[in-house]
Amino acid sequence: MTSNKKSRITSYNKWGYIFLIPFMVVFVVFQLIPLVTTIYNSFFENYMSGLKQVGPNFIGLKNYVQLLTQGDLLKYFKNTMIMWIAGFIPQILLSLLLGAWFTNPSLKLKGQRFFKTVIYLPNLIMASAFSMLFFTLFANTGPVNSILVNIGIFKEPYQFMSHAGTVRGLVAMMNCLMWFGNTTILLMAGMMGISDSLYEAAEVDGATPTQIFFRITLPLLKPIFIYVVVTSLIGGLQMFDVPQILTNGTGDPMRTSMTLIMYLNKHLYSKNYGLAGALSVLLLILTGILSLIVFRTTAKDELK
């Protein structure tokens, strides 16, 4: 009887493997194999010179050397980081402020559902369409210039697309608009996890709202705060749709808004598989290190 029961349990448990088959097969075919071939490609010289195919010839780490010493990789990395930081700082400040307000028990804000619905809305919008919208709105003949000239801020239309500062600023603004709602909701989940009794005790002791925010909310929010910063940084490294559509893939003016993934995309289209591979691997390593930080901090949090 017992052995019969035992064998039935093990026969149930083999279904664990069976149910994992679809995930594993798809993962191996569409993610693992592409990952391996991408890494493999990075060690080969393989590109189109005009209509002539060069390679593939094994050249070791030369693609990496070329990327890091010759190309504009560092410039594009800098562009990506500038646009990410310029969007992320207002994004995180706004999210902290709104999160603190929404979760504050003494404020009791009304209409929270409406505000949350509104601030989350831009996150679901097609990034490419949103970017195209900004391109038309900020064009020389577009409505923003029309408004600015009408109310007398500018005498003539300002050429938003011809200045590095405004193109980067627009990309940062779009990223901030698209992501601050999401960040607010994540931070709120963390803030609501902080016990009310801590706040009450602080209020009884006569702490001001500002003191409460900096002395209680922020320190206790640290794990989720790090999670938000690092995942946003990983997302920032993948920045593509918005600047790609806004500048039509050129990263103009003077490639000051060209991001790493736009650079990768260029190599993929021109079929320079060696450099594209090496660039992918560098991005993978960077993302891996950042993910490790996330795992470390969340794991530490769970141990407590």
């Binding site: 993610q31 592409p34 071939t37 990983i234 991005l283 891996g288």
Partner: peptide, 10 residues
């Protein structure tokens, strides 16, 4: 955390 862009080539 593996971004899809990183494996796009393969």
């Amino acid at each position: 955390m593996i971004p899809t862009q990183v494996t796009a080539l393969g």
